[in-house]
Design a protein around this nucleic acid. Sequence first.
DNA 1: GTGAAATATTAGCCCAGTCTAACTTTATGC
DNA 2: GCATAAAGTTAGACTGGGCTAATATTTCAC
Lengths: 150, 150
Amino acid sequence: MDDDNSEKASPVEARAVESRAEAFQGVRDARRSEVAEDYVELIADLMLEQGEARPVDIAARMGVTPPTVAKTLDRLARDGLVTRARYRSVFLTEEGRALAEECRHRHEIVLRFLLKLGLDPETAERDAEGIEHHVSEKTLKLFEEFVSGS
Amino acid sequence: MDDDNSEKASPVEARAVESRAEAFQGVRDARRSEVAEDYVELIADLMLEQGEARPVDIAARMGVTPPTVAKTLDRLARDGLVTRARYRSVFLTEEGRALAEECRHRHEIVLRFLLKLGLDPETAERDAEGIEHHVSEKTLKLFEEFVSGS
DNA sequence: GTGAAATATTAGCCCAGTCTAACTTTATGC
DNA sequence: GCATAAAGTTAGACTGGGCTAATATTTCAC
Ligand SMILES: [Mn+2]
Ligand SMILES: [Mn+2]
Ligand SMILES: [Mn+2]
Ligand SMILES: [Mn+2]
């Protein structure tokens, strides 16, 4: 090892490192809510479309197997987002409904934003499904303005 | 149960269900590559900044502990993205370098797009770190045009 | 050169989220 | 009403990605 690379971590560099770590932390936090968000949004959808949210319909639309849905719903129930009775459809709690509404709204804005940008509907729907979970309030506001703007 | 809700799944509805499932599948696929993408991008960064990519520096910037980095690097090595020797810095394979370059490019475009939209740099960096993994080629193109456009 | 500090690894734990196989319960058609 | 089909659940396995505690190795200051 020839070159002297011992730049003793200036406060400025230290701050940059920390800030980067916080960004990654934030993304990891967001990741932990993704599945719950998609489920409550879908459950709200199904209750409108079909009058009830059955695990089998959730499974078909999420593209996963029924046991996966069962386990996920148990976690959602544990976290106070849904209520559940054996062999019956699932229902959203107040908290679940609130989260679903928030997610529906955010999904809608992200989708309309991508469409306005010129994306085809199929791709827009797919990208929105992923992007929605990583959009801050500030960004959402800007998306909204862009959609509404001339 | 009074109302008759037995709408026998028309082909149109079936296609809609399937398409939605595909969107979720796509998002799940993207999620599986997120960590690998962030790591190779960061490793490439460190090799430029510091001349080498040490686990301790990766850990600090990712905001995780060294054992987490070790385990992740082992997965990356298994997947042919990095090479590794005990107690030494890590290196990217050809494949790893290619992926890193792709990720760096995509990250850059998403970031510039958010900045152009009017987002503050701190939030832009954080949102970009999450959004980048869920942006299709088509969307990236549109972002690029928007950034370059008058 | 040696000892202490820094770095890296290993072992072992945890939880989320996926699956298949087997079983139970409910809904449906006759 | 009953047989069977559909739906739901349970058990058990697996991977990814996080952690702490303990250990091993390397680096550095003297
Ligand atoms: Mn989604
Ligand atoms: Mn959604
Ligand atoms: Mn990222
Ligand atoms: Mn990135």
